[in-house]
């Protein structure tokens, strides 16, 4: 069969288009992520139910915690204040998270914190020690520089390198569990600020530029999941308290650290862009800051 040059070119063109189309179809069909919401905001009383529902919207706990994996939870546990003060992640939230991880088949669950108060005292007063005992999981006190590893932070503007807790670097899954409260130094303390509890020399951050360092650190340390405890917001005297409280009975769950923090700021009646470290992180492209552009799923349990 003879083909004219024109026909040949036309066929070649069609074939090319077809291949391109196939490629497009393949990409769309096989590797396009299911569109999870940026955030799930869940209200209720039963923490385990709330977390389970919220995670269901994000693809279930199995999406994050695979069977046999090592999970590090970083609750805010630094203060020796009882749970009702709202200075630490609520023990029930932490317990619920541990249980879910266990259900998903996590091999090892570690709780880690670089404390402000003496670790044993803090854990006794804030009841997070009790939770760990009940669930038979281990606490790691990050009170020794040997427990950290120095990493470079290529995208950092001020922090070019810093220490990160080894257990976090070595874990399969890292879940950040901040509590929402106001803060003397950083205005608000939410998810990204909570990562200050897995670094060694916090003083350096204060001495250089706190907000910039928080954002820089987040370019390097990215939690797989952020569970923001907004059960009780601490409105004054943060972060240690006791201060005025606002009971919201809310958890904000998401994978986008900027989105979670921006929503957290909104809970305090603030714009995420007005909190420098959240704005910097957004400028680095770490996530979405504009609530209008986010897909937010609201749930009640």
């Amino acid at each position: 069969m003879k083909i004219s040059r024109r026909e040949f070119l036309a066929k070649l063109g069609k074939l090319g288009l077809a291949i391109l189309g196939m490629k497009e179809i393949l990409r769309e069909g096989l590797s396009a992520p299911p569109t999870y919401p940026h955030l799930v905001v869940v209200k209720g009383r039963d923490m385990e139910m709330m977390l389970e529902k919220a995670l269901g919207e994000l693809g279930g706990i199995q999406r994050f915690v695979k069977k046999g994996s090592t999970v590090v939870l970083k609750p805010n546990a630094a203060f020796a204040q009882p749970p009702e003060v709202g200075a630490n992640a609520h023990p029930e939230v932490v317990q619920a998270m541990i249980r879910l991880c266990k259900k998903a088949g996590a091999k090892k669950i570690i709780l880690a914190e670089h404390f402000l108060a003496s670790p044993n005292v803090a854990l006794k007063v804030n009841k997070l020690g009790e939770v760990a005992e009940k669930e038979k999981v281990k606490w790691i006190f990050l009170e020794d520089p040997k427990l950290y590893r120095r990493v470079s932070i290529p995208k950092g503007k001020v922090l070019k390198e810093d220490d990160v807790a080894q257990c976090v670097l070595d874990a399969d899954v890292f879940i950040n569990m901040p509590v929402a409260k106001v803060h003397g130094g950083s205005i608000l303390t939410l998810g990204m600020k909570n990562l200050m509890g897995i670094t060694w020399d916090r003083g350096y951050w204060h001495r250089t530029d706190l907000h910039r360092c928080i954002a820089d650190y987040s370019t390097r340390v990215k939690p797989h999941l952020v569970v923001l405890d907004a059960i009780t917001l601490m409105l004054t005297n943060g972060p240690g308290g006791p201060g005025e409280l606002k009971h919201l009975n809310t958890l904000v769950v998401g994978t986008d650290p900027v989105a979670v923090d921006s929503y957290g700021a909104y809970l305090f009646g603030k714009d995420g862009k007005d909190i420098p470290h959240i704005r910097y992180a957004w400028e680095y492209g770490l996530g979405e800051i504009d609530l209008k552009k986010m897909r937010i799923r609201n749930l009640a349990v």
Partner: peptide, 16 residues
């Protein structure tokens, strides 16, 4: 002296 955001002392004071 340097205008840094700090207030770590306020953060840690249990008696406000």
């Amino acid at each position: 002296a340097e205008g840094k955001d700090c207030l770590v002392c306020q953060e840690n004071c249990p008696y406000l």
